[in-house]
């Protein structure tokens, strides 16, 4: 036993390592937060200094509408919120059905459909960007948030299916069997029996899908760069970076769009992590 227990030197070494790891992970974020509450003139004069006072005006400037002397981030956030919530709703609805079939039902062609979905998950997304752009612009949807929504649903379905299938597989099967014995139809089984016990898994998957849609940049750039009123929050921040926008305002915007995802992620962290890494234990 004693050979396995760490020595004092090993413990001290680990404490140093943990401290370095925390600085490496959080240092840049802390730097962003500090700059976002410093006045711009102070940042350029003294880049290494700490804030002399708490100046939250950068946040207000970032959020306010252009007509109000701001940079319109408030509107970009609303666009992002709409697209992300729509993506969550559609993607989760499709995936609850698909994942349940993949986890529980024995139908012909099951191995094939599972294989297709996995292959899609690994397929280079950038290659499909070209035809997706062409199709959607032929349909007149590339300059709309609806076009973006379609692309996001397609992008999140494979990973959401995978996560949700893992959650369904981990549920005890006996309850469902009892319900089937009692004459439950498939619809009743899903709504009354499976979903109530699968809520943590569904919520975790929904949050993960939300994060993907909320953080997405490439398709927003490809579809909407010409339409400033429809910019999503990530696109807005990236585009404003090319204009003469004070860096403190950019950072305030970055922090503002980051805080919601970080909070939501940490609330459901345990479930999301277990959904992602399942299968890695073996």
């Amino acid at each position: 036993m004693s050979g396995v227990r760490p020595t004092r030197a090993a413990r001290a070494g680990r404490a140093v390592l943990v401290a370095i790891a925390l600085v490496w992970s959080l240092g840049p974020v802390a730097y962003g937060v500090v700059l976002s509450v410093r006045p711009y003139a102070e940042v350029t004069r003294d880049p290494l200094g700490l804030p002399s006072q708490l100046d939250l005006s950068a946040f207000a400037t970032a959020m306010r509408d252009e007509s109000d002397g701001g940079f319109g981030l408030g509107r970009f956030v609303l666009n992002s919120l709409g697209v992300a919530l729509g993506t969550v709703l559609l993607s989760i609805l499709v995936c609850i059905l698909g994942a349940y079939a993949a986890a529980r039902l024995r139908y012909r062609g099951r191995a094939l459909t599972n294989g297709i979905i996995l292959a899609v998950y690994l397929f280079p997304g950038i290659v499909l960007a070209v035809p997706k752009f062409v199709i959607l612009s032929r349909l007149g949807l590339t300059s709309t948030l609806v076009g973006l929504l379609i692309v996001y649903v397609a992008a999140t379905v494979p990973v959401a299916l995978y996560m949700m299938r893992n959650f369904f597989l981990a549920l005890p099967q006996s309850v469902e069997e009892a319900a089937i014995m009692d004459g439950c139809t498939l619809g009743q089984l899903l709504v009354r029996v499976v979903l109530p016990i699968a809520v943590p898994g569904v919520v975790a998957t929904a949050i993960y899908v939300f994060m993907i849609a909320w953080n997405e940049y490439f398709y927003a750039l490809l579809f909407l760069v010409q339409h400033r009123d429809r910019w999503t929050a990530p696109l807005g921040i990236a585009q404003l970076g090319d204009f003469q926008v004070p860096v403190t305002v950019l950072l305030a915007g970055s922090i503002a769009v980051t805080v919601p995802v970080v909070i939501v992620f940490f609330l459901a962290q345990r479930y999301i992590v277990s959904g992602l890494v399942q299968g890695a234990e073996r």
Partner: peptide
Amino acid sequence: RSGWLLVSPSLLVVGLVVLLPF
């Protein structure tokens, strides 16, 4: 039948937005 019914929306999404573009 239920299996195909449940998995068809997923396949539809994958087919329309992945296989067709490919």
